[in-house]
Amino acid sequence: MAIDATLGNALNEQINKEIYSAYLYLTFADYYEDRGLKGFANWYMIQVEEELAHAKILRRYLLDNEYQVKMLAIAQPDKTFTNDMDPLIAAYEHEKYITASINECYTLAYEQHDFRTMQLLDWFVKEQGEEETNASDMIKNMELFGNDAKGLFELDREYQARAFTAPAMSM
């Protein structure tokens, strides 16, 4: 079944946003790497993989629904950081932006009674809930423990243990 052009365009733009997210999170990883916080850097490198996986899921879905995917230009991230909290706050704000974008895609699918796309987007809605919670938790952890060298060390070790697991979707 061919996907509606308006919805296809929105999903195609979402691919771009997911790839931009990966690009943005690379800058976060680089910041923490430069600071010697390899665990925080690892956390964001895993985020890079997740965002690219999201883009691939959307790409495959569009191709499977007879929509010609267009690779759009990726904007250069413009964030600068003055402390270890800055990337965490930027990540949380960015995840809220991505959630709003997914919700806009869902609204289009709902308005068009495109139940198959709604089913795909159900997974993304749940995923974004997890992403926002993780980002918020990282801020809270930094507020609680980040001002103490030992606490920051322990957080960094915790984040170093994170490993990438490819998303498993059943459609």
Score class of each variant (00 low, 15 high):
F40P: 04
A41D: 05
A41W: 06
W43A: 05
W43C: 02
Y44Q: 08
Y44K: 03
Q47D: 05
V48Y: 15
V48I: 11
V48H: 14
E50N: 14
L52H: 15
L52R: 15
A53R: 13
A53W: 14
H54N: 11
A55G: 11
K56S: 12
I57L: 10
R60S: 10
R60Q: 12
Y61C: 02
L62H: 01
L62I: 05
L62E: 00
L63C: 07
D64M: 07
D64W: 04
N65P: 09
N65Q: 09
N65G: 06
E66G: 10
E66A: 13
E66T: 14
Y67E: 02
Q68G: 08
Q68N: 14
Q68W: 11
I74T: 10
A75P: 02
A75L: 03
Q76V: 12
P77G: 02
D78Y: 11
K79P: 05
K79W: 14
T80C: 05
T82D: 13
T82S: 13
N83V: 09
D84V: 12
M85R: 15
D86E: 10
D86T: 11
D86R: 08
L88S: 08
L88G: 08
I89W: 11
I89Q: 14
I89F: 13
A90H: 15
A90D: 14
A91K: 08
Y92Q: 12
E93G: 05
H94T: 06
H94D: 10
Y97F: 15
I98G: 00
I98K: 01
I98C: 01
S101E: 03
I102L: 01
N103K: 04
Y106R: 00
Y106H: 03
Y106V: 00
L108M: 13
L108F: 14
L108D: 03
L108H: 10
Y110M: 06
E111P: 07
Q112R: 14
Q112I: 07
Q112F: 10
Q112M: 10
H113Y: 12
D114Q: 05
F115R: 08
R116N: 12
T117F: 03
T117N: 01
Q119T: 15
L120P: 00
L120G: 01
L120V: 05
L121N: 00
L121W: 01
D122G: 06
D122M: 09
D122Q: 13
W123R: 04
E127K: 13
G129E: 00
E130N: 11
E130C: 05
E130A: 08
E131C: 02
E132V: 04
E132M: 02
N134F: 09
A135M: 04
A135Q: 03
S136V: 07
D137N: 12
D137C: 04
